[in-house]
């Protein structure tokens, strides 16, 4: 591993940290345009995070130290995940430490901590949100794993950089299995990031909340970290999607080259812009499902992913 690789690694993590709120801001802006509202500034998430960092934290009387530690753990898990996902380059020193399965484990760690913290204070809404989160999570996780397995089978590796390198350099062919898993991945992304068919990120009605209900007791820097972590999670999922289904434009190959690295940054920005707009369209045209329909939604994702796997095994495509 050369110094340039470590520099790439650092650059990638910083890019994820900096770009995640921007990505959320972009999605919110697109959504506002599509819904004929005047759009908030694209920088709005940064302002919200900055404002929250300046405030004094208020803790519930019954909050244990777990409640205070959770935001840092969740944030750390998301930064760790960003470190192993190839968003600009496939030469990442950290990616030797965790393959795609460990990555799913990192997301699960964050989920467990955020849910336990929500239950820690003992309010009704917190527990409600935590339970729903676990319901969504335990159904989304196998679907995500199946999606990753299909890509791993095609490229014969479970490490994300190796997968996207393998997929980017293969000859172009129709892969029905990848198409199926691509749809499954979008469904999982929507469910895991509290987007509209499953949860509404902008809701103010506690009874329909999943993600927001878990954050109700948080304030100031803790809330800022949680919000930032949520933005990072969405960014990470988008980058996993690019790594699996749109791996072109990444800096690949064995010889490190600052030129390709620099060229891959605008490509990533373009992909993010398109993905954000597409996400906004999906969220605008679909209605929120009843909570008890969410298992059906995720069962569809699982089904599509498994079908992709089976079709790949049968047809080799």
């Amino acid at each position: 591993m050369t110094p340039l690789d470590w520099l790439t690694q650092l650059l990638e993590m910083l890019a994820a940290l900096a770009a995640a709120p921007l990505f959320v801001g972009w999605i919110n802006q697109c959504r506002a345009w599509l819904q004929n509202r005047s759009a908030p500034s694209i920088l709005q998430p940064y302002r919200a995070i900055r404002k929250l960092f300046y405030k004094d934290a208020v803790l519930a009387t019954h909050a244990s130290s777990f409640f205070r530690v959770a935001p840092y753990v969740v944030f750390g898990a998301m930064v760790g995940a960003a470190a192993v996902i190839p968003s600009v380059s496939t030469r990442l020193p950290f990616s030797n430490a965790a393959d795609a399965i460990a990555l799913v484990g990192l997301f699960a760690t964050a989920r467990v901590f955020i849910s336990l913290a929500a239950m820690d204070v003992g309010t009704a809404f917190g527990s409600l949100g935590a339970r729903r989160e676990m319901l969504v999570g335990f159904l989304a996780e196998p679907a995500l794993l199946m999606v990753i397995f299909v890509a791993s089978l095609i490229s014969a590796s479970t490490a994300l950089p190796a997968i996207s390198e393998g997929l980017a350099t293969r000859t172009l062919a129709l892969y029905p299995s990848l198409a199926f898993t691509g749809v499954a991945f979008v469904l999982v992304l929507l469910a895991e990031n509290a987007r509209i068919p499953v949860d509404n990120p902008a809701t103010h009605l506690e009874l329909t909340m999943i993600h927001e209900a878990m954050l109700l007791e948080y304030s100031a820097r803790h809330l800022a970290l949680m919000e930032w972590a949520a933005a990072l999670k969405l960014f990470n999922y988008a980058c996993i999607g690019f790594a699996l289904f749109l791996p072109w434009g990444l800096a690949t190959g064995d010889s490190p080259n600052p030129g390709t690295l620099l060229a891959s940054i605008p490509v990533l920005a373009g992909k993010l812009a398109i993905a954000g707009a597409a996400l906004a369209v999906i969220e605008t045209v679909s209605a929120k499902l009843r909570v008890f329909r969410a298992p059906e939604f995720l069962a569809t994702a699982f089904l599509l992913a498994v079908l992709g796997l089976l079709v790949h095994l049968l047809l080799g495509a």
Partner: peptide
């Protein structure tokens, strides 16, 4: 052949 395979998988879907 790739197209035929794609059609086959769509039939299944």
């Amino acid at each position: 052949l790739q197209l035929l395979n794609a059609f086959a998988s769509l039939l299944l879907l």
